[in-house]
Design a protein around this nucleic acid. Structure first.
Lengths: 350, 350
DNA sequence: CGGATATTTGCATACGAATGCAGATCCCAA
DNA sequence: TTGGGATCTGCATTCGTATGCAAATATCCG
């Protein structure tokens, strides 16, 4: 494409040194004298030389590429994660190779990643076949599952404490006096949904209630809207709805307010999960459970970089604390209860 | 990392052919007989062989990597673009190498891209120093500026008709009877903002009005909120606000409704730009100008792929039509005017 | 069936940089 | 001044694949 193929040889010639000297100049920790280093750098600058990462990758076996798999980017949680992840990895000298998964071509996806010789893999999506996760883990490349986990796999995972998150919501709603509490699930086979729901229903039970009704939104906006409609069909609807993530909660809010003409929270309390930026916007003021996105990213990068540098794959499981963010989409319990809920959630790491 | 270094040589040995034969089997359009192709494929399958893209890239000079530069992902317009762009490029056999730009390290960015030998570059962000754009263009690699343009550069660009978009909004607001019309600008040095504002003020002038007041939001949520506050400071505020993009318009809406206690559109009309998904949500119902994101992506990929395949860099400038999306955040003009505005916008390509 | 194309095949080399090894150079102390 | 160790340097090879070229084989037509 361009004639700008300046090689280390060219630089060597201009600097009157060997190609090795050039290579060493650009290899941190290699043995070069200050004088030759400077001559090389001068020559490199003059020619506009930049080491070819691909060639380097062939020799060293390290491409500095991290594959990031994502299923969709319309739920704002993921773009933000992607941005931070990318920034952080860049700072560590890695670049993100983006893979958008399709339900159809998941096998090809793994092949592609391997073809690009990626050094590590981050699977960032609650919904993604565990087959895909398994295939990735089998490659022997460090894999971090972000916001999901698969127990039997040699892949690390970073999640937040979804179980506790679900519990907190149950307590909030029950203590606020709700008696017809419904839940809109995300993808049923996702670990995030399972844990949030498990914590939620367990705590409901502990407080002497049962789930009044249940819908399935599949983590999609439209799915959640439909689930909300179904939930309210019939003579009497729920007086509180816990939705498995914020993205779906917005859809539920729209149905509740605009289609059903009900008020939030006077007629119905609504609680989401994630605390994406929109949850704080005036149009929704969504009470929700905050996933500590930044910490999750930090942990992900830490795990990944550690394994890359040590060249050893070790399974880590990080579970970061999550906590309630009280806004005004849900009726409030008495002040004392509220105080006990709004504190930071529980933590845990193994 | 893994012992899975299956090379074409290994496959060749197992299949009793030369390494060349293996290579040719995996090179579309190369000369191999059906029999050897099958033997090679069988052996490859048995060993789990996958061609090493990096090695291939060294020889062929094509990495199949497309650098996508993005400045931020919190404005929903970009994640969606990124998702579609990535999907589309994947289908064409390319992968997206993601670069998050930092105001600080823009020079490094170009170096990094070149080091990875990317085949093409998409700069997807309204705000990004034109120096960066210039550097990219100078590399001789095909560059497409997405949603922005820089006249003097040999870089292609894909935008929507921001000039006409601005005009439409002006006409809408004036015909609806507004007399104190304000504008909240994005980044002042961005072509999107310039064009939207130019079209807007030109049309205002044509209709006998002047901009009543102007603020600057810098395409950030917080910046726009502050701009909105400033706009309404004083005895009398604007009766209509055009905001340079939806993302900022949401911030303005929050300020107008929650902080100032005004109603939209009864007290103030609000119009955004982009038509991101949230604009259609019940919490905002934002009247806005739709940028044809999908078409813009299609065009971007078309331009890019064409140049990659022909190995020639030719400057293309695509300007796709945009049109008003009427929701309920802005007061409506009479039906006849409305009909004349709501039609599809104008188009143009060069 | 013979000769002449057309198609396959393998050989050898190239892509650009990293690195083990051995020789060269340097530094410092005796 | 000399010896010994530490530091540099260049040579040659390597990573995994693509490709020009010439040899080998297959195909076709009269």
């Amino acid at each position: 494409m361009a004639k700008d193929t300046v090689t280390s040889e060219d630089v060597a010639k201009l600097a009157n040194v060997s190609q090795s000297a050039v290579s060493r100049t650009f290899t941190p920790g290699a043995s070069v004298s200050e004088t030759t280093r400077e001559r090389v750098l001068a020559a490199a600058r003059e020619l506009g030389y930049r080491p070819n990462v691909l060639a380097r990758a062939m020799i060293s076996g390290r491409s500095q590429l991290i594959a990031v798999l994502v299923a969709y980017l319309d739920n704002q949680f993921y773009p933000i994660v992607l941005e931070q992840l990318s920034r952080s990895l860049q700072q560590h000298g890695y670049q993100v190779l983006l893979f958008m998964t399709d339900p159809g071509n998941q096998d090809q996806m793994v092949q592609k990643m391997l073809q690009y010789q990626v050094d590590g893999i981050v699977m960032a999506s609650a919904t993604m076949s565990s087959t895909l996760a398994r295939e990735c883990a089998q490659t022997g490349i460090p894999v971090v599952l972000f916001n999901r986990y698969v127990p039997a796999l040699p892949a690390s995972s970073v999640t937040s404490d979804n179980l506790t998150g679900g519990q907190l919501v149950a307590r909030l709603l029950v203590k606020a006096g709700h008696r017809r509490i419904a839940f809109i699930a995300g993808a049923e086979n996702s670990s995030t949904n399972r844990d949030r729901e498990a914590g939620f229903t367990a705590e409901l039970a502990a407080l002497g209630q049962r789930l009044w009704r249940r819908g399935i939104g599949g983590y999609t906006f439209e799915g959640a809207a439909q689930a909300a409609r179904d939930l309210f069909a019939g003579d009497v609807g729920p007086d509180a709805v816990f939705v498995a993530n914020d993205h779906m909660a917005f859809a539920a809010a729209d149905v509740i307010r605009d289609e059903l003409g009900l008020r939030i929270p006077q007629d119905v309390s609504l609680v989401g999960y994630d605390d994406v930026p929109e949850a704080g916007w005036g149009g929704y003021k969504l009470t929700t459970v905050k996933q500590p996105g930044e910490q999750m990213i930090e942990e992900t990068v830490r795990i990944l970089v550690e394994q890359l540098e040590s060249r050893k794959v070790v399974k880590h499981e990080a579970i970061l604390p999550s906590h309630l963010v009280i806004r005004s989409s849900a009726r409030l319990p008495d002040a004392e209860t509220l105080a006990s809920l709004a504190g930071p959630g529980t933590a845990g790491t193994s």
